[in-house]
Design a protein around this nucleic acid. Sequence first.
DNA 1: GGGTCCATGTAACTGGTTACATGATTCT
DNA 2: AGAATCATGTAACCAGTTACATGGACCC
Lengths: 186, 186
Amino acid sequence: MRVLKFAILGLLYRQEYSGYDITSQFKKEIGQFWSAKHSQIYPELRKLVDEGLLHFRTQIQGEKLEKKMYTITEAGRKELLAWAISPEPLPETEKDAFMLKMYFIHTLSKEEAKTLFQDQLQQRQDKLVYLQQQYDDLIPVFGTENTADAMYFDHPHLGHYLVLTKAIAREQSYVVWLEQQMKLFL
Amino acid sequence: MRVLKFAILGLLYRQEYSGYDITSQFKKEIGQFWSAKHSQIYPELRKLVDEGLLHFRTQIQGEKLEKKMYTITEAGRKELLAWAISPEPLPETEKDAFMLKMYFIHTLSKEEAKTLFQDQLQQRQDKLVYLQQQYDDLIPVFGTENTADAMYFDHPHLGHYLVLTKAIAREQSYVVWLEQQMKLFL
DNA sequence: GGGTCCATGTAACTGGTTACATGATTCT
DNA sequence: AGAATCATGTAACCAGTTACATGGACCC
């Protein structure tokens, strides 16, 4: 399906980035829903240039460090748009190794299961705190909340906002489910 | 990490299965959180036999159709247990191509985004109905609900119950988030 | 001078999907 | 007789991770 291809095209839709920059982006908000290592990104960039979807110029950083700044071409934009409007089918499976362990809960003692469970709850709660902090940092620049609407479709940070609120919803749902099932260990 | 290895060991913990049976299991409840195609399962079964974690006997079905029924060995149980009790770290990224598209929502017109959004909402709602039906089918045999407790840690279908309730929570959270963000298109 | 980050690449391997290939059983 | 399902396997390919490899820039 070559999702990485479209992730890169999407990132380059609004600005020029180096391979390193793209790697960094995947460590930020969008990393909650897609990411790749630099070892996958650099070959993909090359492929996209070969396919005529990107081009690059070499820029000198400091004295002699060369970096390649990539830009999306018209052909690239066209492919990106075609992908972006295509309806996204649900995956049959959303892999979750913790839930696989839960399916096999009968292999564990009550104490062992409780420990595993509480560890997962703690991790999810910590992540939730982290995401909520990110949300609090975004809201001043975004300006929604309390004013009921003031939600602009054309706001430049809307994607950022959607990704963050979705990640928070996901973690909250996980935490609530874990807390509810804790009754098993009373 | 060889999660498939442990998924197979876990399935064989309580009963004997053929490769075909394991493939079928991944199309049932646990398929919400882990699955594999037969083309991955058959080589893995062979590998697990080579490693001494499984053994099998050949059984004749009907006139001459041979099937291999796999059983977990003591070594297999030991490895399964070690995996099952080990704390499960959160994945940094939970890949979701729809959310990647949402991150790039600025590439779309309001109408295009709305169509994409509504399609995803419909799919998630349909899936929720399907999962709730499965839940309704399970509850008579499981016997929780309304009686406040009656939730046995040792119930043979607890894993089944956990996986279903978690899948429902996941889809509900998705639907609620989509509905909330629909305000963008008013 | 040393540490962290910026910057780019390749090689080997692992995990997973799609396609190819075959044949028996069961139900209608 | 034909369709759906049971049953097992391999080959080719694609996606993704870990490890190897190198060097410059910036800050203290």
